[in-house]
Design a protein around this nucleic acid. Structure first.
Lengths: 250, 250
DNA sequence: GACGGCGTTTGGTAATACTGAACACTTATA
DNA sequence: TATAAGTGTTCAGTATTACCAAACGCCGTC
């Protein structure tokens, strides 16, 4: 595992690939070279190789590059291998229908929530793809409920990191958060009181694997006025009962 | 664009990445080295670099590698950039509900259909993720209806390729297919009479971009007995009318 | 206990990826 | 209109480094 057993040019190339984002889906050699402090021509060679292999596509209008459809296929293999989405989707649909709220399914990936799927109470309703989106653990319902059931050392690593305040409601004091996690464990579910986004409240329930460790969570969320204490308890109960057959079996 | 302006080590590394598939989601250095005719230690270095960057994960049980969650994020960016899934999903939900059949949405990618999304008539119904799956053009409803509206030279390139018979119903004679495409253009929709999978029939309608070129298609499919001639015409009409607002606007 | 499989480590050399400058081109400023 | 600053692209030389090959330790089986 020594550093010189790594292919440095590949690591550099992957850095280039990671410059592409939702905010900046199209980039040229100069932009990337500036972002990474690399040579323009070096970036160019990397880009044109990715293009030749189908991972990047060149926009002939702008001469810039964007991520190609080939990466979708890789994502498909991942999903198929994990199989989580397919396994959970029918349950998520039921949760959205019975709570009449938008339902989210996310898994624990390092110190972030990785969103896998969302479902909606009505089929006609406008929806959007969230696969691949990420959010912090400490300020989202999904994240906090996973944090509450994670090993202490992992929790401390998260709490000792930067706790950015996304809204005025975000809990950024590690001590307050520790007490809050204790309360979540008592309740068996977490709430998100507009800690990540203004006006959005949510209720989240953990999902445990066969080894008894939390690895995912399911939430319903919506406009804050709808989420009074009674609704929250009721929704948590609905989610828990629907997810029951999936607990401790993966 | 000469071949030596490419980063060869990157191209090799991407070859390694492409060895992973739905059928073989977990691979070790020896297996990959055999598949590609490369040196075992070379592959090992590439694998461990991908691992360090998060694109591969090592299974500690087997010491083999599998695709990590990071590639999902790249897929998310692609989707967000293209935005097709989000744009089409509400319409696909309506199509599934009104035809009471499973609805598929695929786009043209080279000489294949790339499936983007599927929707189901009932929300509770079991469903599966198809994003990233691919199928040939000449023997699927989605593929044939796109083929019917593609430029002649592209059609000929597909027809001159290998036309594998997936079932006894698959059309493998280029001349028969040419006539068949003419018929599809007359009808405005394509049918798939168990040409790709036994027992499955389907109806597919093309989607055109602002430049008037076909770039995607939508189909409904199901068990063959349900698809009598009358139902087919009716379903085609339903799909066309629901998709109407999306035609020629992308 | 020898063999064959695996993933991993190592050193030396031949391949090659990066540097840096120049190119052709567009856009915007003077 | 001329200049300047930006872009993507090309090219040669050099210093990096990625690959080859063999050996390692480990786990099975024969």
């Amino acid at each position: 595992m020594s550093d010189d057993s790594q292919v440095k040019s590949l690591a550099r190339a992957l850095q280039v690939l990671e410059c592409f984002s939702v905010e900046q889906p199209e980039l040229g050699p100069s932009e990337i070279a500036r972002m990474l402090g690399m040579q323009k021509s070096t970036v160019y060679n990397i880009l044109s190789t990715f293009q030749k292999c189908g991972y990047l596509v060149k926009n002939p209008q702008t001469s810039k590059y964007y991520l190609g459809l080939k990466v979708l296929h890789l994502g498909y293999i991942v999903n198929s291998h994990h199989g989580l989405r397919d396994m959970f989707l029918p349950y998520l649909n039921r949760i959205a229908a019975e709570t009449r709220e938008v339902c989210y399914f996310g898994i624990l990936d390092g110190s972030e929530v990785l969103y896998i799927e969302s479902t909606y109470p009505s089929q006609q309703q406008q929806t959007r793809n969230i696969l691949g989106e990420r959010a912090p653990l400490y300020c989202t319902g999904l994240g906090k409920v996973m944090l509450a059931y994670m090993p202490e050392e992992d929790v401390e690593r998260v709490l000792s990191g930067r706790l950015k305040a996304y809204t005025g409601c975000t809990l950024t004091d590690p001590n307050v958060l520790r007490d809050h996690l204790e309360e979540i464990r008592r309740n068996g579910y977490a709430t998100d009181n507009m800690e990540h986004e203004y006006g959005i409240r949510c209720v989240a329930v953990p999902v445990f694997n066969a080894a008894g460790k939390v690895f995912a969570a399911v939430s319903v969320s919506g406009p804050s006025p709808r989420f009074d204490p009674e609704t929250i308890i009721n929704d948590a109960r609905i989610i828990s009962s629907i997810l029951q057959p999936l607990q401790h079996c993966i």
